[in-house]
Simulated assay, not measured.
Amino acid sequence: MSQTDPAAIESEIVATRDHLKGTVDELAHRLTPKEIARRSVAEAKSDVREATTNPDGSLRVERIAAVAAAVAAVVGLLAVLRHRRS
């Protein structure tokens, strides 16, 4: 068959259309709110795991302690501010 053969051209068009349909379907799936949320949660979990554990799986106690201290400082500051308002 040659490139000018109508059957070959039609077959190529059908194949291209199927490929584009698959691409559009994949993009539509990736852009659904549920999928975006799933990816965001997975990325956040990965980031927390990476920030709080060493490559061998043990906890990075110094980082956990620093975060706990920062949270305690913010809670303390909010308590002081709330107490001053009342």
Rank of each mutant, 00 (worst) to 15 (best):
D5G: 03
A65L: 12
A7E: 14
P6H: 06
M1F: 10
K34D: 08
V48F: 12
H83C: 00
D5C: 05
V14L: 09
E50Q: 11
L27D: 06
G57L: 08
V61N: 03
A44E: 12
L81F: 06
S11D: 12
T4L: 06
V24A: 03
I64D: 06
A37H: 06
D47S: 12
S40F: 09
A70V: 00
T16M: 05
S58A: 00
V71R: 13
A7F: 02
R39A: 09
S58H: 10
G22R: 05
E50M: 10
V41D: 05
R49F: 08
L78P: 02
S58G: 04
E10D: 12
R84M: 00
I13E: 10
T53C: 00
T52M: 15
T16S: 03
E50P: 00
R60I: 11
A66S: 09
I9N: 02
N54M: 11
T52V: 14
A51F: 13
D25H: 06
R38Q: 09
G76I: 06
D56R: 05
I9S: 03
A70S: 08
R84L: 07
T53K: 07
R85D: 05
E35P: 02
D56W: 11
D56H: 02
G22F: 03
A66Y: 06
A72Q: 15
V74H: 04
S46L: 09
E35Y: 04
T4A: 06
R30T: 08
A72F: 12
T52K: 13
L59W: 14
T4R: 08
A28R: 08
R60S: 00
S86I: 02
S58T: 15
M1E: 15
D56E: 13
S2H: 11
S2C: 10
A79L: 13
D18Q: 10
A7L: 05
T23L: 14
T32L: 01
P6T: 12
K21M: 04
P55V: 00
A69F: 03
P55M: 00
T16V: 01
V74Q: 14
H29C: 02
A51N: 07
L31Q: 14
A28E: 14
K21W: 01
R85I: 02
Q3M: 08
H19A: 04
R38P: 01
L78Q: 15
R39N: 06
S46E: 10
R49N: 09
R84P: 00
D25Q: 13
L81M: 15
T53W: 03
E26D: 07
A69L: 08
I9A: 02
A65S: 09
A79K: 14
S40Q: 14
E35L: 01
A7S: 11
I9M: 07
I64Y: 01
H19W: 07
I64R: 05
A51P: 01
L20M: 15
P33A: 05
T32M: 05
D56T: 07
E62Q: 14
R30Q: 09
T32R: 02
V74F: 09
A66E: 15
M1G: 15
